[in-house]
C-alpha cells in the first residue's frame, strides 16, 4: 500500500469516511518524465514567442537580400555581414561603443563604491545618511528621456554650464559640449555615468552591509589601517558582486540607444555613433533591414560572449 494512503482519522471527520482508505487523485502526468516540462511550458512558450522567434527571425533576415521591405527577397548568405563588417562606420561605432561602455563601467564602479562606502560609514549620523542616500540615488529615478533633455539644456551653448564657466573665467567663450567632435563622446559618456552609478552604488551598499564585522576586527588586530582593510577585506568580499555588476553594466551600456539618440543622434558626423544607433539608422533610415539584422546579430554575438562570462562567473560563485 502506498504510504500516502495510511491516513490517520482526523478530528471531526465522519467515521464512515475515515474508515475508507483515501485514494489520492493521481494525475496521469505523475511519474511521467514530461511532468516537469508541463509545469515549465507556460514560461517556455512565452520565451519562445518573445525571445526565440524574434531572434531566429532577425538571424534569418540577416541572410536575405532585402528583408521586410521586399516581398520576394533572396537568400544571399553572408553578403550582408560582409557589407556591415566592411563599413568603416561600423568599426567607428564599435570603437565608440567600447570606449563609452568601458569608461562608463569603470566610472560607475568607482563612484558607486565611493558613495556606498560613505553611506555605509558609521561616521555619519543616520539622518545625514538618509539625506545622502536620497540625493545619490536621484539620477537613477529619471527616465532616459528626461536625462537627455535635462543635459541638453544644461550643456546648451546658452545653458547654465556655459554661463558658469564664462562667468567664473574658466573659459573665454561658450563650449559646444555636444556639438563639438572633441567633446561630444566624453560628454555623453559623462551623462551616462551620471545616470547609471546609483545602480552600482545600491548593489555595492547591500554587499558592504553583508560583510561580517569580525573580519574588520581581525584585520585591525593584525594592524591593518583603513586602506589595507578596504583592499584586503572589502574588495575581496565584494568581488563576486563587482564582477557580476561590471559584466551586466557593460552589456546594458553597449545597448544604450535612447540617451545617444536624444542627445547627439550619433553626431557630430560619427563622433558618438554607437552600434545601437548605427543599427537603428540602417533599419529606419536606410530601410536596409537585412544589413541592420546582420549588425544586430554581430552585437548579439558580442553580447553573448559577455553573457557567457557572466554565467560562468555566477556558476563559480555558486
Amino acid at each position: 500500500m502506498p504510504a500516502s494512503t495510511a491516513v490517520e482519522p482526523t478530528l471531526g471527520a465522519s467515521p464512515e469516511r475515515s474508515d475508507r482508505p483515501r485514494r489520492p487523485r493521481r494525475s496521469h502526468l505523475q511519474g511521467s518524465p514530461l511532468r516537469p516540462y508541463a509545469f515549465l511550458s507556460p514560461t517556455l512558450i512565452v520565451m519562445l514567442v518573445l525571445m526565440a522567434v524574434p531572434i531566429v527571425m532577425v538571424v534569418w533576415y540577416s541572410f536575405q537580400d532585402s528583408a521586410v521591405t521586399v516581398p520576394s527577397t533572396e537568400f544571399v548568405g553572408f553578403e550582408k555581414y560582409q557589407q556591415v563588417l566592411s563599413d568603416g562606420t561600423f568599426w567607428k561605432a564599435t570603437s565608440n561603443t567600447a570606449i563609452f561602455a568601458g569608461v562608463s563601467v569603470i566610472a560607475h564602479f568607482a563612484i558607486g563604491i565611493a558613495f556606498a562606502t560613505l553611506l555605509n560609514s558609521e561616521l555619519l549620523s543616520p539622518a545625514v545618511r538618509a539625506v545622502f542616500r536620497t540625493v545619490f540615488i536621484l539620477p537613477w529615478l529619471f527616465t532616459v528621456a528626461v536625462v537627455a533633455v535635462l543635459w541638453r539644456m544644461l550643456l546648451n551653448p546658452n545653458g547654465i554650464v556655459n554661463y558658469l564657466i564664462t562667468t567664473f573665467g574658466i573659459s573665454d567663450s561658450s563650449i559646444e559640449w555636444l556639438s563639438s567632435s572633441a567633446t561630444a563622446l566624453p560628454v555623453v559618456t559623462f551623462i551616462n555615468i551620471w545616470c547609471g552609478y546609483p545602480f552600482f552604488m545600491v548593489s555595492l551598499l547591500a554587499g558592504l552591509q553583508g560583510i561580517p564585522k569580525d573580519l574588520y576586527e581581525a584585520a585591525r588586530v593584525d594592524g591593518a589601517g583603513p586602506v589595507h582593510q578596504f583592499f584586503h577585506v572589502t574588495i575581496p568580499q565584494l568581488r563576486p558582486i563587482i564582477l557580476s555588476m561590471a559584466i551586466l553594466d557593460f552589456i546594458w551600456t553597449t545597448q544604450q540607444f535612447a540617451l545617444i539618440w536624444m542627445t547627439t543622434g550619433g553626431g557630430p558626423v560619427d563622433t558618438t555613433e554607437m552600434l545601437s544607433t548605427y543599427t537603428y539608422k540602417l533599419a529606419f533610415s536606410n530601410y536596409d533591414f537585412s544589413a541592420a539584422s546582420a549588425s544586430a546579430v554581430v552585437v548579439l554575438l558580442l553580447s553573448m560572449i559577455l553573457a557567457i562570462l557572466y554565467v560562468r562567473q555566477q556558476k563559480a560563485r555558486d
Partner: peptide, 14 residues
C-alpha cells in the same frame, strides 16, 4: 499508459 497520455496532453497543450 499514463506516460503516453501525459505526453499527448502536454503536447496538445503546448
Amino acid at each position: 499508459s499514463n506516460g503516453a497520455l501525459g505526453r499527448r496532453t502536454v503536447l496538445a497543450g503546448m
